[in-house]
Design a protein around this nucleic acid. Sequence first.
RNA 1: UGGGGGAUCGUCCAAUGGCAGGACUACGGACUCUGACUCCGUCAAUCCAGGUUCGAAUCCUGGUCCCUCAGCCA
Length: 567
Amino acid sequence: MTAKTEAPSNFIREIVKTDLAAGKHTRVMTRFPPEPNGYLHIGHAKSICLNFGIARDFNGVCNLRFDDTNPTKEEVEYVEAIKADVRWLGFDWEDREYYASNYFEQLYDFAVQLIRDGKAYVDSLSADEIRAHRGTLTEAGKNSPFRERSVEENLDLFARMRAGEFEDGTHVLRAKIDMAAPNINLRDPTLYRIRRVSHHRTGDAWCIYPMYDFAHGLSDSIEGVTHSICTLEFENNRPLYDWFLDNLPVASRPRQYEFARLNLSYTVMSKRKLLKLVQEGIVDGWDDPRMPTISGLRRRGFTPEAVRNFCERIGVAKRDSMVDIALLEYSLRDDLNDRAPRFMGVLNPLRVVIENYPEDQHEELEARNHPTDPGFGTRMVPFSRVLYIEQDDFREDPPKKFFRLAPGREVRLRYAYLITCTDVIKNDAGEVVELRCTYDPATRGGNAPDGRKVKSTIHWVAAAHAVDADVRLYDRLFSEADPETAGDGDFKACLNPKSLTRLKGCRIEPALAGVEPGAIVQFERLGYFCADSKDGTPEGPVFNRTVTLRDPWAKIDKQLKAKGIIG
RNA sequence: UGGGGGAUCGUCCAAUGGCAGGACUACGGACUCUGACUCCGUCAAUCCAGGUUCGAAUCCUGGUCCCUCAGCCA
Protein backbone atom coordinates (compact mmCIF):
# COMPACT_ATOMS: atom_id res chain seq x y z
CA MET A 1 0.00 0.00 0.00
CA THR A 2 1.47 3.32 -1.02
CA ALA A 3 1.37 6.37 1.17
CA LYS A 4 -1.07 8.00 -1.21
CA THR A 5 -3.78 5.40 -0.70
CA GLU A 6 -3.22 4.91 3.02
CA ALA A 7 -6.19 6.39 4.81
CA PRO A 8 -5.44 8.81 7.64
CA SER A 9 -6.71 7.87 11.05
CA ASN A 10 -9.89 9.15 12.63
CA PHE A 11 -11.85 8.57 15.82
CA ILE A 12 -13.58 5.46 14.47
CA ARG A 13 -10.31 3.91 13.37
CA GLU A 14 -8.95 4.64 16.84
CA ILE A 15 -11.88 2.79 18.38
CA VAL A 16 -11.33 -0.18 16.09
CA LYS A 17 -7.64 -0.20 16.89
CA THR A 18 -8.31 -0.06 20.62
CA ASP A 19 -10.94 -2.81 20.44
CA LEU A 20 -8.61 -5.05 18.50
CA ALA A 21 -5.75 -4.39 20.90
CA ALA A 22 -8.04 -5.24 23.82
CA GLY A 23 -8.93 -8.52 22.17
CA LYS A 24 -12.61 -7.70 21.88
CA HIS A 25 -12.77 -9.16 18.40
CA THR A 26 -10.74 -11.64 16.44
CA ARG A 27 -11.75 -9.97 13.22
CA VAL A 28 -13.34 -6.62 12.54
CA MET A 29 -16.49 -6.63 10.44
CA THR A 30 -18.19 -3.53 9.06
CA ARG A 31 -21.00 -3.11 6.62
CA PHE A 32 -22.30 -0.66 4.08
CA PRO A 33 -26.11 -0.73 4.41
CA PRO A 34 -27.92 1.26 1.71
CA GLU A 35 -31.65 1.14 1.26
CA PRO A 36 -32.25 0.36 -2.41
CA ASN A 37 -34.56 3.30 -2.92
CA GLY A 38 -32.33 5.57 -4.98
CA TYR A 39 -28.91 6.16 -6.40
CA LEU A 40 -25.74 6.48 -4.40
CA HIS A 41 -24.05 9.86 -4.13
CA ILE A 42 -20.70 11.12 -2.98
CA GLY A 43 -21.93 11.18 0.61
CA HIS A 44 -22.39 7.43 0.35
CA ALA A 45 -18.90 7.23 -1.12
CA LYS A 46 -17.60 8.67 2.14
CA SER A 47 -19.36 5.92 4.05
CA ILE A 48 -18.21 3.24 1.61
CA CYS A 49 -14.60 4.36 1.85
CA LEU A 50 -14.85 4.45 5.63
CA ASN A 51 -16.41 1.02 6.02
CA PHE A 52 -14.48 -0.83 3.34
CA GLY A 53 -11.33 1.10 4.20
CA ILE A 54 -11.42 0.01 7.84
CA ALA A 55 -12.02 -3.60 6.82
CA ARG A 56 -9.12 -3.46 4.39
CA ASP A 57 -6.66 -1.81 6.77
CA PHE A 58 -7.46 -3.93 9.81
CA ASN A 59 -7.61 -7.29 8.03
CA GLY A 60 -11.34 -7.48 8.39
CA VAL A 61 -14.28 -7.69 6.05
CA CYS A 62 -17.04 -5.36 4.98
CA ASN A 63 -20.47 -6.60 3.94
CA LEU A 64 -22.77 -5.05 1.45
CA ARG A 65 -26.19 -5.19 3.01
CA PHE A 66 -29.34 -3.84 1.49
CA ASP A 67 -31.60 -2.41 4.13
CA ASP A 68 -34.73 -3.43 2.31
CA THR A 69 -37.37 -3.29 4.99
CA ASN A 70 -39.74 -0.89 3.26
CA PRO A 71 -40.93 -2.40 -0.02
CA THR A 72 -42.99 0.62 -1.04
CA LYS A 73 -39.86 2.55 -1.93
CA GLU A 74 -37.47 -0.11 -3.10
CA GLU A 75 -36.66 -1.58 -6.49
CA VAL A 76 -34.22 -4.04 -8.03
CA GLU A 77 -33.09 -1.33 -10.42
CA TYR A 78 -31.59 0.44 -7.43
CA VAL A 79 -29.85 -2.61 -6.04
CA GLU A 80 -28.17 -3.19 -9.38
CA ALA A 81 -27.13 0.45 -9.65
CA ILE A 82 -25.78 0.43 -6.11
CA LYS A 83 -23.73 -2.69 -6.71
CA ALA A 84 -22.30 -1.19 -9.89
CA ASP A 85 -21.37 2.00 -8.07
CA VAL A 86 -19.66 0.27 -5.14
CA ARG A 87 -17.75 -1.93 -7.56
CA TRP A 88 -16.77 1.07 -9.65
CA LEU A 89 -15.41 2.75 -6.55
CA GLY A 90 -13.09 -0.20 -6.28
CA PHE A 91 -14.50 -2.15 -3.36
CA ASP A 92 -15.29 -5.84 -3.17
CA TRP A 93 -17.79 -7.46 -0.85
CA GLU A 94 -16.91 -10.89 -2.26
CA ASP A 95 -19.75 -13.28 -1.44
CA ARG A 96 -21.13 -11.13 1.36
CA GLU A 97 -24.07 -9.61 -0.46
CA TYR A 98 -26.77 -9.55 2.16
CA TYR A 99 -30.31 -8.28 2.48
CA ALA A 100 -32.24 -7.45 5.60
CA SER A 101 -35.07 -9.30 3.88
CA ASN A 102 -33.00 -12.48 4.13
CA TYR A 103 -33.54 -12.26 7.87
CA PHE A 104 -37.30 -11.69 7.89
CA GLU A 105 -37.97 -15.10 9.39
CA GLN A 106 -35.36 -14.69 12.14
CA LEU A 107 -36.55 -11.18 12.79
CA TYR A 108 -40.09 -12.47 13.12
CA ASP A 109 -38.91 -15.03 15.63
CA PHE A 110 -37.14 -12.32 17.61
CA ALA A 111 -40.36 -10.33 17.67
CA VAL A 112 -42.27 -13.35 18.95
CA GLN A 113 -39.64 -13.77 21.63
CA LEU A 114 -40.15 -10.18 22.75
CA ILE A 115 -43.89 -10.78 22.94
CA ARG A 116 -43.36 -13.93 25.01
CA ASP A 117 -41.12 -11.96 27.36
CA GLY A 118 -43.80 -9.31 27.75
CA LYS A 119 -41.60 -6.80 25.97
CA ALA A 120 -43.73 -6.20 22.89
CA TYR A 121 -47.42 -5.84 22.20
CA VAL A 122 -49.83 -5.41 19.35
CA ASP A 123 -51.29 -1.94 19.33
CA SER A 124 -54.56 -1.33 17.53
CA LEU A 125 -54.54 2.42 17.71
CA SER A 126 -54.48 4.33 14.45
CA ALA A 127 -51.35 6.10 13.34
CA ASP A 128 -52.85 9.42 14.38
CA GLU A 129 -53.78 8.12 17.80
CA ILE A 130 -50.32 6.70 18.33
CA ARG A 131 -48.86 10.06 17.46
CA ALA A 132 -51.17 11.78 19.90
CA HIS A 133 -50.18 9.34 22.63
CA ARG A 134 -46.49 9.83 22.02
CA GLY A 135 -46.32 13.16 23.83
CA THR A 136 -43.95 15.90 22.80
CA LEU A 137 -40.31 16.78 23.21
CA THR A 138 -41.07 18.20 26.64
CA GLU A 139 -44.10 16.17 27.74
CA ALA A 140 -44.25 12.46 28.48
CA GLY A 141 -46.44 10.23 26.36
CA LYS A 142 -49.43 8.19 27.48
CA ASN A 143 -49.74 4.43 27.43
CA SER A 144 -51.86 2.91 24.73
CA PRO A 145 -55.05 1.22 25.99
CA PHE A 146 -53.75 -1.92 24.24
CA ARG A 147 -50.45 -1.90 26.07
CA GLU A 148 -51.48 -4.48 28.64
CA ARG A 149 -52.83 -7.12 26.31
CA SER A 150 -51.92 -10.62 27.42
CA VAL A 151 -49.02 -12.49 25.90
CA GLU A 152 -51.47 -14.99 24.42
CA GLU A 153 -53.56 -12.32 22.79
CA ASN A 154 -50.47 -10.58 21.43
CA LEU A 155 -49.11 -13.84 20.07
CA ASP A 156 -52.41 -14.57 18.40
CA LEU A 157 -52.80 -11.09 16.95
CA PHE A 158 -49.22 -10.94 15.68
CA ALA A 159 -49.59 -14.34 14.01
CA ARG A 160 -52.77 -13.10 12.34
CA MET A 161 -51.02 -9.91 11.26
CA ARG A 162 -48.52 -12.09 9.50
CA ALA A 163 -51.25 -14.32 8.10
CA GLY A 164 -52.80 -11.34 6.38
CA GLU A 165 -56.02 -11.15 8.34
CA PHE A 166 -55.86 -7.40 8.86
CA GLU A 167 -55.92 -4.33 6.71
CA ASP A 168 -52.94 -2.02 6.43
CA GLY A 169 -52.73 0.35 9.35
CA THR A 170 -55.06 -1.50 11.67
CA HIS A 171 -52.39 -2.90 13.95
CA VAL A 172 -48.70 -2.55 14.64
CA LEU A 173 -46.31 -4.42 16.87
CA ARG A 174 -44.62 -2.17 19.40
CA ALA A 175 -41.82 -2.64 21.88
CA LYS A 176 -42.92 -2.09 25.45
CA ILE A 177 -40.28 0.24 26.80
CA ASP A 178 -41.27 3.54 28.39
CA MET A 179 -43.81 6.08 27.18
CA ALA A 180 -42.21 8.68 29.44
CA ALA A 181 -38.66 8.20 28.17
CA PRO A 182 -36.95 11.53 27.49
CA ASN A 183 -35.63 9.96 24.30
CA ILE A 184 -38.70 9.75 22.11
CA ASN A 185 -37.31 6.77 20.23
CA LEU A 186 -37.81 4.75 23.38
CA ARG A 187 -41.53 5.57 23.74
CA ASP A 188 -42.69 2.15 22.61
CA PRO A 189 -41.29 2.24 19.10
CA THR A 190 -43.01 0.41 16.27
CA LEU A 191 -41.42 -2.89 15.33
CA TYR A 192 -43.73 -4.12 12.59
CA ARG A 193 -46.35 -2.56 10.37
CA ILE A 194 -48.80 -4.16 7.96
CA ARG A 195 -48.06 -3.37 4.33
CA ARG A 196 -49.74 -5.34 1.58
CA VAL A 197 -47.03 -4.55 -0.90
CA SER A 198 -44.88 -6.87 -2.96
CA HIS A 199 -41.27 -6.85 -1.96
CA HIS A 200 -38.61 -6.82 -4.65
CA ARG A 201 -37.05 -9.94 -3.15
CA THR A 202 -39.61 -11.69 -1.00
CA GLY A 203 -42.55 -11.01 -3.29
CA ASP A 204 -45.82 -11.57 -1.46
CA ALA A 205 -44.44 -13.90 1.19
CA TRP A 206 -44.89 -11.16 3.78
CA CYS A 207 -47.46 -8.52 4.48
CA ILE A 208 -45.80 -7.30 7.65
CA TYR A 209 -42.43 -5.62 7.47
CA PRO A 210 -39.98 -4.77 10.25
CA MET A 211 -38.96 -1.19 10.95
CA TYR A 212 -35.40 0.05 10.54
CA ASP A 213 -34.66 0.28 14.26
CA PHE A 214 -35.74 -3.28 14.88
CA ALA A 215 -34.10 -4.77 11.81
CA HIS A 216 -30.83 -2.93 11.68
CA GLY A 217 -29.00 -3.88 14.86
CA LEU A 218 -30.30 -7.42 14.73
CA SER A 219 -29.14 -7.76 11.14
CA ASP A 220 -25.73 -6.48 12.22
CA SER A 221 -25.75 -9.07 14.99
CA ILE A 222 -26.82 -11.92 12.72
CA GLU A 223 -23.96 -11.14 10.35
CA GLY A 224 -21.42 -10.72 13.13
CA VAL A 225 -20.77 -7.05 12.41
CA THR A 226 -18.48 -5.61 15.07
CA HIS A 227 -18.60 -1.90 14.27
CA SER A 228 -21.82 -0.54 12.86
CA ILE A 229 -21.00 2.87 11.44
CA CYS A 230 -23.73 5.32 10.53
CA THR A 231 -24.39 9.03 10.34
CA LEU A 232 -25.05 11.49 13.14
CA GLU A 233 -28.83 11.61 12.87
CA PHE A 234 -28.94 8.07 14.23
CA GLU A 235 -27.32 9.04 17.52
CA ASN A 236 -30.76 9.23 19.09
CA ASN A 237 -31.48 5.73 17.86
CA ARG A 238 -28.47 4.15 19.52
CA PRO A 239 -30.19 3.48 22.88
CA LEU A 240 -32.86 1.62 20.94
CA TYR A 241 -30.25 -0.22 18.87
CA ASP A 242 -28.78 -1.36 22.16
CA TRP A 243 -32.14 -2.18 23.72
CA PHE A 244 -32.94 -4.87 21.15
CA LEU A 245 -29.52 -6.43 21.52
CA ASP A 246 -29.80 -6.35 25.30
CA ASN A 247 -33.27 -7.90 25.37
CA LEU A 248 -32.88 -10.65 22.84
CA PRO A 249 -30.67 -13.76 22.85
CA VAL A 250 -28.30 -12.52 20.17
CA ALA A 251 -25.18 -14.35 19.09
CA SER A 252 -22.98 -11.30 18.67
CA ARG A 253 -22.92 -7.81 20.07
CA PRO A 254 -22.23 -5.04 17.54
CA ARG A 255 -21.72 -1.41 18.57
CA GLN A 256 -22.98 1.60 16.69
CA TYR A 257 -20.79 4.64 16.00
CA GLU A 258 -21.84 7.82 14.29
CA PHE A 259 -19.98 10.28 12.09
CA ALA A 260 -20.97 13.49 10.31
CA ARG A 261 -22.42 13.08 6.85
CA LEU A 262 -20.80 14.87 3.95
CA ASN A 263 -22.03 18.26 2.87
CA LEU A 264 -20.44 19.79 -0.20
CA SER A 265 -20.57 23.46 -1.09
CA TYR A 266 -22.52 24.44 -4.22
CA THR A 267 -24.48 21.22 -4.27
CA VAL A 268 -27.30 19.39 -2.52
CA MET A 269 -27.05 15.91 -1.17
CA SER A 270 -30.45 14.84 0.06
CA LYS A 271 -32.16 12.12 -1.92
CA ARG A 272 -35.37 14.11 -1.90
CA LYS A 273 -33.79 17.15 -3.50
CA LEU A 274 -31.79 15.15 -6.01
CA LEU A 275 -34.97 13.35 -6.98
CA LYS A 276 -36.67 16.68 -7.50
CA LEU A 277 -33.92 17.83 -9.86
CA VAL A 278 -34.44 14.68 -11.88
CA GLN A 279 -38.23 14.72 -11.84
CA GLU A 280 -38.52 18.34 -12.82
CA GLY A 281 -36.08 17.90 -15.66
CA ILE A 282 -33.63 20.39 -14.22
CA VAL A 283 -30.97 17.82 -14.85
CA ASP A 284 -30.79 15.07 -17.40
CA GLY A 285 -31.30 12.12 -15.07
CA TRP A 286 -29.52 10.56 -12.12
CA ASP A 287 -26.32 10.33 -14.12
CA ASP A 288 -26.34 13.90 -15.33
CA PRO A 289 -22.70 14.99 -15.07
CA ARG A 290 -23.70 17.83 -12.76
CA MET A 291 -25.20 15.48 -10.20
CA PRO A 292 -23.22 14.51 -7.09
CA THR A 293 -24.35 10.91 -7.64
CA ILE A 294 -21.68 8.31 -8.22
CA SER A 295 -23.13 7.67 -11.66
CA GLY A 296 -23.08 11.41 -12.38
CA LEU A 297 -19.47 11.72 -11.29
CA ARG A 298 -18.58 8.73 -13.41
CA ARG A 299 -20.22 10.20 -16.46
CA ARG A 300 -18.60 13.54 -15.73
CA GLY A 301 -15.21 11.89 -16.01
CA PHE A 302 -14.24 11.32 -12.39
CA THR A 303 -12.03 8.36 -11.64
CA PRO A 304 -12.61 6.10 -8.63
CA GLU A 305 -9.18 7.10 -7.35
CA ALA A 306 -10.10 10.78 -7.39
CA VAL A 307 -13.23 10.07 -5.37
CA ARG A 308 -11.39 7.83 -2.92
CA ASN A 309 -8.59 10.31 -2.43
CA PHE A 310 -11.15 13.01 -1.80
CA CYS A 311 -12.85 10.85 0.81
CA GLU A 312 -9.53 10.39 2.58
CA ARG A 313 -8.69 14.06 2.50
CA ILE A 314 -11.99 15.22 4.03
CA GLY A 315 -11.50 13.08 7.12
CA VAL A 316 -14.12 11.69 9.46
CA ALA A 317 -15.41 13.47 12.54
CA LYS A 318 -18.56 14.21 14.49
CA ARG A 319 -19.08 17.88 13.83
CA ASP A 320 -21.38 19.11 11.10
CA SER A 321 -19.37 20.51 8.28
CA MET A 322 -19.46 21.77 4.73
CA VAL A 323 -16.55 20.67 2.59
CA ASP A 324 -15.41 23.14 -0.05
CA ILE A 325 -16.01 21.74 -3.51
CA ALA A 326 -12.56 23.12 -4.37
CA LEU A 327 -11.13 20.16 -2.49
CA LEU A 328 -13.06 17.77 -4.71
CA GLU A 329 -11.79 19.58 -7.78
CA TYR A 330 -8.26 19.47 -6.44
CA SER A 331 -8.51 15.72 -5.87
CA LEU A 332 -9.82 15.32 -9.38
CA ARG A 333 -7.11 17.35 -11.10
CA ASP A 334 -4.46 15.73 -8.96
CA ASP A 335 -5.45 12.32 -10.30
CA LEU A 336 -6.27 13.31 -13.86
CA ASN A 337 -2.97 15.13 -14.26
CA ASP A 338 -1.17 11.81 -13.96
CA ARG A 339 -3.43 9.78 -16.18
CA ALA A 340 -4.89 11.99 -18.92
CA PRO A 341 -3.14 12.01 -22.30
CA ARG A 342 -2.85 15.49 -23.76
CA PHE A 343 -4.46 16.67 -26.96
CA MET A 344 -5.30 19.95 -28.61
CA GLY A 345 -8.85 21.01 -29.18
CA VAL A 346 -10.35 24.39 -29.98
CA LEU A 347 -13.67 25.09 -28.34
CA ASN A 348 -14.46 28.45 -29.91
CA PRO A 349 -12.56 28.51 -33.19
CA LEU A 350 -11.00 31.62 -34.68
CA ARG A 351 -9.66 31.16 -38.19
CA VAL A 352 -5.99 31.94 -38.74
CA VAL A 353 -4.30 32.10 -42.12
CA ILE A 354 -0.51 31.81 -42.19
CA GLU A 355 0.16 33.99 -45.17
CA ASN A 356 3.70 32.90 -45.83
CA TYR A 357 2.92 29.19 -45.55
CA PRO A 358 2.41 27.55 -48.96
CA GLU A 359 -1.18 26.78 -49.80
CA ASP A 360 -0.64 23.21 -50.90
CA GLN A 361 1.76 22.31 -48.14
CA HIS A 362 1.10 20.29 -44.99
CA GLU A 363 3.41 18.69 -42.48
CA GLU A 364 3.28 16.50 -39.41
CA LEU A 365 4.73 17.75 -36.14
CA GLU A 366 5.60 15.53 -33.22
CA ALA A 367 3.80 16.21 -29.95
CA ARG A 368 4.21 14.65 -26.51
CA ASN A 369 1.16 12.92 -25.13
CA HIS A 370 2.14 13.78 -21.57
CA PRO A 371 4.42 16.55 -20.32
CA THR A 372 6.26 14.53 -17.71
CA ASP A 373 5.55 10.85 -18.33
CA PRO A 374 7.36 9.61 -21.46
CA GLY A 375 5.42 6.38 -21.19
CA PHE A 376 2.51 8.08 -22.90
CA GLY A 377 4.55 8.36 -26.08
CA THR A 378 4.15 10.88 -28.84
CA ARG A 379 1.85 11.49 -31.76
CA MET A 380 1.96 13.43 -35.01
CA VAL A 381 -0.12 16.57 -35.40
CA PRO A 382 -0.87 17.98 -38.85
CA PHE A 383 -0.04 21.60 -39.62
CA SER A 384 -1.09 23.64 -42.62
CA ARG A 385 -1.79 27.15 -43.87
CA VAL A 386 -5.23 27.56 -42.36
CA LEU A 387 -5.60 26.89 -38.67
CA TYR A 388 -7.98 27.50 -35.83
CA ILE A 389 -7.02 28.97 -32.51
CA GLU A 390 -9.15 29.75 -29.47
CA GLN A 391 -11.06 33.01 -29.62
CA ASP A 392 -9.95 33.72 -26.07
CA ASP A 393 -6.34 33.58 -27.20
CA PHE A 394 -6.60 36.77 -29.23
CA ARG A 395 -7.30 40.33 -28.16
CA GLU A 396 -7.22 43.17 -30.60
CA ASP A 397 -6.57 45.56 -27.75
CA PRO A 398 -4.75 43.43 -25.18
CA PRO A 399 -4.94 44.55 -21.56
CA LYS A 400 -1.91 44.48 -19.32
CA LYS A 401 -0.93 40.90 -18.38
CA PHE A 402 -2.59 39.46 -21.47
CA PHE A 403 0.26 37.48 -22.95
CA ARG A 404 -1.50 35.83 -25.84
CA LEU A 405 -1.88 36.82 -29.49
CA ALA A 406 -2.55 40.43 -30.48
CA PRO A 407 -1.82 42.54 -33.51
CA GLY A 408 1.93 42.65 -34.13
CA ARG A 409 2.62 40.17 -31.34
CA GLU A 410 4.45 36.88 -31.65
CA VAL A 411 3.37 33.70 -29.84
CA ARG A 412 4.20 30.04 -30.14
CA LEU A 413 1.82 27.49 -31.59
CA ARG A 414 2.39 24.51 -29.37
CA TYR A 415 4.78 21.96 -30.91
CA ALA A 416 4.78 23.98 -34.17
CA TYR A 417 6.05 27.45 -35.02
CA LEU A 418 6.29 30.98 -33.75
CA ILE A 419 3.71 33.13 -35.49
CA THR A 420 3.11 36.86 -35.59
CA CYS A 421 -0.25 38.48 -36.11
CA THR A 422 -0.13 40.91 -39.03
CA ASP A 423 -3.74 41.71 -39.73
CA VAL A 424 -7.23 41.42 -38.28
CA ILE A 425 -10.28 40.79 -40.46
CA LYS A 426 -13.73 41.71 -39.23
CA ASN A 427 -17.26 41.18 -40.44
CA ASP A 428 -19.87 43.90 -40.91
CA ALA A 429 -20.76 43.69 -37.25
CA GLY A 430 -17.21 44.53 -36.33
CA GLU A 431 -16.46 41.08 -34.96
CA VAL A 432 -13.07 39.54 -35.53
CA VAL A 433 -13.55 36.63 -37.92
CA GLU A 434 -10.06 35.92 -39.14
CA LEU A 435 -6.44 36.63 -38.34
CA ARG A 436 -3.67 36.95 -40.87
CA CYS A 437 -0.33 35.84 -39.51
CA THR A 438 3.17 35.00 -40.65
CA TYR A 439 5.25 32.15 -39.33
CA ASP A 440 8.98 31.85 -38.86
CA PRO A 441 10.10 28.71 -40.71
CA ALA A 442 13.23 28.59 -38.60
CA THR A 443 11.19 27.90 -35.47
CA ARG A 444 9.85 24.49 -36.49
CA GLY A 445 9.09 22.50 -33.37
CA GLY A 446 8.65 25.68 -31.39
CA ASN A 447 12.13 26.97 -30.65
CA ALA A 448 13.81 29.99 -32.18
CA PRO A 449 17.44 29.45 -33.19
CA ASP A 450 18.25 32.99 -32.11
CA GLY A 451 16.99 32.20 -28.64
CA ARG A 452 14.22 34.76 -28.60
CA LYS A 453 11.37 34.08 -26.23
CA VAL A 454 7.64 34.54 -26.48
CA LYS A 455 5.35 35.11 -23.56
CA SER A 456 2.75 32.61 -24.59
CA THR A 457 2.24 29.21 -26.13
CA ILE A 458 -1.23 28.56 -27.46
CA HIS A 459 -3.06 25.52 -28.76
CA TRP A 460 -4.39 25.17 -32.31
CA VAL A 461 -5.67 22.71 -34.90
CA ALA A 462 -5.19 22.54 -38.66
CA ALA A 463 -8.48 23.51 -40.28
CA ALA A 464 -8.47 20.89 -43.01
CA HIS A 465 -7.57 18.03 -40.71
CA ALA A 466 -9.59 18.86 -37.62
CA VAL A 467 -12.51 16.75 -36.49
CA ASP A 468 -15.80 18.29 -35.40
CA ALA A 469 -16.97 17.61 -31.90
CA ASP A 470 -19.72 18.63 -29.53
CA VAL A 471 -18.52 19.71 -26.14
CA ARG A 472 -20.53 20.22 -22.99
CA LEU A 473 -19.14 22.59 -20.45
CA TYR A 474 -20.28 21.69 -16.98
CA ASP A 475 -20.12 24.01 -14.04
CA ARG A 476 -21.41 23.80 -10.48
CA LEU A 477 -25.17 23.31 -10.29
CA PHE A 478 -25.80 26.06 -7.78
CA SER A 479 -24.56 29.60 -7.52
CA GLU A 480 -24.75 29.67 -3.73
CA ALA A 481 -22.36 27.79 -1.49
CA ASP A 482 -25.22 26.49 0.61
CA PRO A 483 -28.32 26.04 -1.55
CA GLU A 484 -30.14 24.47 1.39
CA THR A 485 -30.30 27.71 3.30
CA ALA A 486 -29.68 30.34 0.63
CA GLY A 487 -32.88 30.06 -1.37
CA ASP A 488 -35.22 30.90 1.49
CA GLY A 489 -36.27 27.30 1.73
CA ASP A 490 -36.38 26.87 -2.03
CA PHE A 491 -33.10 25.34 -3.02
CA LYS A 492 -33.96 25.74 -6.69
CA ALA A 493 -33.92 29.51 -6.37
CA CYS A 494 -30.14 29.54 -6.59
CA LEU A 495 -29.60 27.17 -9.49
CA ASN A 496 -26.67 28.27 -11.60
CA PRO A 497 -28.12 29.20 -15.00
CA LYS A 498 -24.76 28.45 -16.60
CA SER A 499 -24.29 25.00 -15.15
CA LEU A 500 -24.35 23.59 -18.67
CA THR A 501 -23.11 25.16 -21.88
CA ARG A 502 -23.45 23.14 -25.07
CA LEU A 503 -20.88 23.85 -27.72
CA LYS A 504 -21.15 22.68 -31.31
CA GLY A 505 -18.57 22.89 -34.02
CA CYS A 506 -15.60 22.54 -31.74
CA ARG A 507 -12.51 21.49 -33.66
CA ILE A 508 -10.28 18.79 -32.25
CA GLU A 509 -7.15 17.19 -33.56
CA PRO A 510 -7.64 14.13 -35.80
CA ALA A 511 -5.94 11.75 -33.39
CA LEU A 512 -9.21 11.86 -31.41
CA ALA A 513 -11.48 10.88 -34.30
CA GLY A 514 -12.39 7.42 -33.09
CA VAL A 515 -12.11 8.06 -29.39
CA GLU A 516 -13.67 5.43 -27.14
CA PRO A 517 -16.63 6.38 -24.98
CA GLY A 518 -15.46 7.18 -21.48
CA ALA A 519 -11.92 8.04 -22.55
CA ILE A 520 -10.26 10.71 -20.44
CA VAL A 521 -8.13 13.39 -22.07
CA GLN A 522 -6.77 16.80 -21.34
CA PHE A 523 -7.34 19.47 -23.93
CA GLU A 524 -4.24 21.45 -23.26
CA ARG A 525 -4.75 24.73 -21.49
CA LEU A 526 -8.50 24.11 -21.20
CA GLY A 527 -9.17 21.27 -18.85
CA TYR A 528 -9.90 17.59 -18.50
CA PHE A 529 -12.61 16.10 -20.64
CA CYS A 530 -14.11 12.69 -21.17
CA ALA A 531 -15.79 11.25 -24.22
CA ASP A 532 -19.41 10.89 -23.19
CA SER A 533 -20.39 7.29 -22.61
CA LYS A 534 -23.85 7.70 -24.10
CA ASP A 535 -24.04 10.38 -26.73
CA GLY A 536 -21.03 9.97 -28.98
CA THR A 537 -21.94 9.37 -32.65
CA PRO A 538 -20.07 7.90 -35.59
CA GLU A 539 -19.97 11.39 -37.12
CA GLY A 540 -18.28 12.91 -34.15
CA PRO A 541 -17.47 12.49 -30.51
CA VAL A 542 -19.16 14.29 -27.64
CA PHE A 543 -16.94 15.48 -24.82
CA ASN A 544 -17.90 16.40 -21.29
CA ARG A 545 -15.72 18.88 -19.52
CA THR A 546 -14.82 17.17 -16.28
CA VAL A 547 -13.02 20.10 -14.72
CA THR A 548 -11.07 23.09 -15.95
CA LEU A 549 -7.38 23.49 -15.34
CA ARG A 550 -6.47 26.00 -12.68
CA ASP A 551 -6.63 29.27 -14.55
CA PRO A 552 -5.04 32.36 -12.97
CA TRP A 553 -5.69 34.37 -16.12
CA ALA A 554 -9.42 33.78 -15.86
CA LYS A 555 -9.24 35.35 -12.42
CA ILE A 556 -7.26 38.34 -13.61
CA ASP A 557 -9.58 38.77 -16.57
CA LYS A 558 -12.60 38.70 -14.30
CA GLN A 559 -11.09 41.32 -12.04
CA LEU A 560 -10.26 43.55 -14.98
CA LYS A 561 -13.80 43.24 -16.26
CA ALA A 562 -15.21 43.97 -12.83
CA LYS A 563 -13.16 47.13 -12.69
CA GLY A 564 -14.46 48.14 -16.08
CA ILE A 565 -10.94 48.33 -17.44
CA ILE A 566 -11.87 46.20 -20.41
CA GLY A 567 -15.16 45.36 -22.00
C1' U B 1 -39.12 24.45 27.04
C1' G B 2 -37.03 17.64 27.42
C1' G B 3 -33.29 14.22 25.63
C1' G B 4 -28.96 13.25 22.60
C1' G B 5 -24.60 15.42 20.09
C1' G B 6 -21.05 19.31 18.48
C1' A B 7 -18.00 24.04 18.64
C1' U B 8 -9.81 24.60 16.53
C1' C B 9 -7.10 29.06 10.44
C1' G B 10 -12.00 31.29 5.14
C1' U B 11 -12.87 25.43 4.53
C1' C B 12 -11.83 20.23 6.13
C1' C B 13 -9.00 17.34 9.49
C1' A B 14 -5.03 16.67 13.58
C1' A B 15 -2.86 17.67 18.39
C1' U B 16 -5.59 12.00 23.69
C1' G B 17 -2.34 17.83 30.22
C1' G B 18 3.71 19.59 27.36
C1' C B 19 6.30 24.08 20.91
C1' A B 20 -1.62 24.57 18.06
C1' G B 21 0.19 21.00 12.95
C1' G B 22 -1.33 19.19 7.84
C1' A B 23 -4.37 19.71 3.47
C1' C B 24 -7.56 22.86 0.38
C1' U B 25 -8.45 28.01 -0.74
C1' A B 26 -6.35 32.93 -1.15
C1' C B 27 -1.95 35.80 -1.93
C1' G B 28 3.43 36.32 -3.42
C1' G B 29 7.65 34.17 -5.92
C1' A B 30 10.71 30.41 -8.86
C1' C B 31 10.27 27.20 -13.03
C1' U B 32 7.69 26.40 -17.66
C1' C B 33 6.73 24.91 -25.35
C1' U B 34 -0.07 24.05 -21.04
C1' G B 35 -1.05 31.35 -17.34
C1' A B 36 -1.24 23.62 -16.11
C1' C B 37 2.02 20.52 -13.19
C1' U B 38 6.10 21.04 -9.73
C1' C B 39 8.87 23.83 -6.07
C1' C B 40 9.43 27.82 -2.36
C1' G B 41 7.12 31.34 0.67
C1' U B 42 3.02 34.45 3.10
C1' C B 43 -1.71 35.36 5.50
C1' A B 44 -4.72 32.62 8.74
C1' A B 45 -7.73 29.42 14.34
C1' U B 46 -8.60 26.92 19.96
C1' C B 47 -17.00 29.93 21.14
C1' C B 48 -17.16 33.11 25.90
C1' A B 49 -16.17 33.78 31.33
C1' G B 50 -14.17 31.80 35.54
C1' G B 51 -11.34 27.77 37.98
C1' U B 52 -7.59 23.49 38.70
C1' U B 53 -2.32 23.04 37.18
C1' C B 54 4.60 24.53 36.77
C1' G B 55 1.78 24.07 32.21
C1' A B 56 -5.12 23.71 29.44
C1' A B 57 -7.65 23.26 22.69
C1' U B 58 -7.59 19.09 26.12
C1' C B 59 -9.70 18.63 33.02
C1' C B 60 -13.76 21.29 36.26
C1' U B 61 -17.90 25.08 36.74
C1' G B 62 -21.18 28.44 34.42
C1' G B 63 -22.85 30.51 29.93
C1' U B 64 -23.49 31.15 24.39
C1' C B 65 -24.31 29.25 19.61
C1' C B 66 -25.18 25.18 16.08
C1' C B 67 -27.10 20.20 14.76
C1' U B 68 -30.62 16.29 15.91
C1' C B 69 -35.28 13.58 17.76
C1' A B 70 -42.28 13.87 18.35
C1' G B 71 -42.87 8.24 10.56
C1' C B 72 -46.82 2.60 10.68
C1' C B 73 -39.33 6.33 6.45
C1' A B 74 -34.22 4.93 6.65
